[in-house]
Structure formats: structure tokens, C-alpha cells
Amino acid sequence: MSKAIIKIESLTIGYDDVTVLKDISFQVRQGEIFIILGGSGCGKSTLLNHIIGLHSPQSGHIFIHSKDLTTADTAQRREILESFGVAFQGGALFGSMTLLDNVMLPLTEHTALPHSAVEWIARQKLALVGLAGFESKMPAQLSGGMQKRAALARAMALDPDILFLDEPSAGLDPVTAAHLDELILQLSQTLGITFVIVTHELQSIFSLAGRAIMLDKETQGIIAEGNPNDMKNDRSNPAVWRFFNRTAATETV
């Protein structure tokens, strides 16, 4: 078994005095596709925002490459932040820049590559996500799915070994979503990138078929962990069963 690249230890998170998730622990192993699932409002995105260091947890520790993000000083923090890329749910592309400039930004700021190289690599990243020919478009001129793919290209600009994706295939048509899943699988296999994906798209969950944890709103913790295909057939937990089999909650449960 490969070593743990992200370690979450007894983490309690929330906003102000509201606790969203209580005392959760899990590990993400090097090179795997790790999926965080759960229904709307269970704290998936909140958890992601804490792991990528946007918010401080109420208690607990987050280790990325065995460095503790919760206690890191400014220099360590920068080092940790540079080791991963994030594609946000809405894309979060800079609206005043073209797609190419968006992808070139991290490359020009963090590497010593000549301009022609930066542009070449940025074009390739865009081509990789199927956006060749859209380099000079502004983000606002693109569809939601294209913005998501462009955000993925920007997150990959520096070839980080961890990529965090927030709802990558939400709002995409099935064909585009399948392409994106295939791309994720291929990147994971060829480059050994570790993916941490927040999603509730069943199709993607099964085709990516990594390891998953499922969060629950009521218990404020992890209610299932393992391979999604096994989770689907597990009838022991009604909440997990309902999620995977698209069954509405009933009063008796």
C-alpha cells in the first residue's frame, strides 16, 4: 500500500459557533482517486475548503505531505499550497483575463520558464482538457462546462501532485462528464497525480471508482468508507443505500 499523502486527524470544522463536521479522521494515499461524497449541505465543500487551507479548523490537524497545515508558518504554508492545485466549483477563473492568461498566470509567477515555454505549456494544458482554439476567449464567454475544464487546466498548470476538484462534473452533459472522468483517470495513471474529488454525481463516482468517504449531515461525521461499488450494495446503512440508489428518505427511516 502506498503511503498517505494527506492525513486528517480528529478534525472538527464549522463556521463561527456552528459545527458542521465533528472529529473526523481519514487518509488519502499517494496516487489514488479519493472521493468525498454526501448529500447537499453535509459539509463536503466546507471540508474541502479546510483541507486547502482557506479556513482554520475548530480543532484537529491536517497533514499534507506530512506537513501540518494547521500549525504551519507563512513559509511552510506557501510550500504546502504550492504542492497542490484546486479547481473550484464555479471555476473561479479571473474574469478580466483570457483563458490562456488564466492558465499562464501560475506558470509565470512560480517558474523561471521563458515566455514561449509558458505559452506552449498553457496551450497544451488547455488542449488537454479539450479547449484548444478557445485560448483568447474570456471566461464569461464560455459555457459552465468549459469554465470547469479551464479551471482544471489552471489547477494543473504547475503539475501539482495533488489536485482538489470541487464538483468537477456537476452541470456537465453526460458525454463531457465522461470525457472529464476519463481525463482524470488517465492523469492519475500516467502522472501519478492524487485526486481528491468532492462530488455527488453517481456516474462519476462509479467510473472513477477510487476510494470514497461519505459524510452525513445528521451524525456530522463519516458514515461510510471504501470502494463506491461495495458501498452501493451495502444495505446495512440506510443513508448510504438511499444515496447510491437514489431513493428519497421516508418518515419511517
Binding site: 488537454l128 479539450g130 482554439g133 485560448e135 500516467t190
Partner: peptide, 18 residues
């Protein structure tokens, strides 16, 4: 072989002229 696969992926989608 894994790099070849990646290279092919890039080559398949030639960067078009704007």
C-alpha cells in the same frame, strides 16, 4: 510508455491558430 501516452494526448490536439 506512460510518457508516450501523455505525449500522444498532447499531439492529438494540435494547438490551433487563433
Amino acid at each position: 510508455s506512460e510518457l508516450k501516452e501523455l505525449l500522444n494526448r498532447f499531439e492529438k490536439t494540435p494547438t490551433q491558430l487563433e
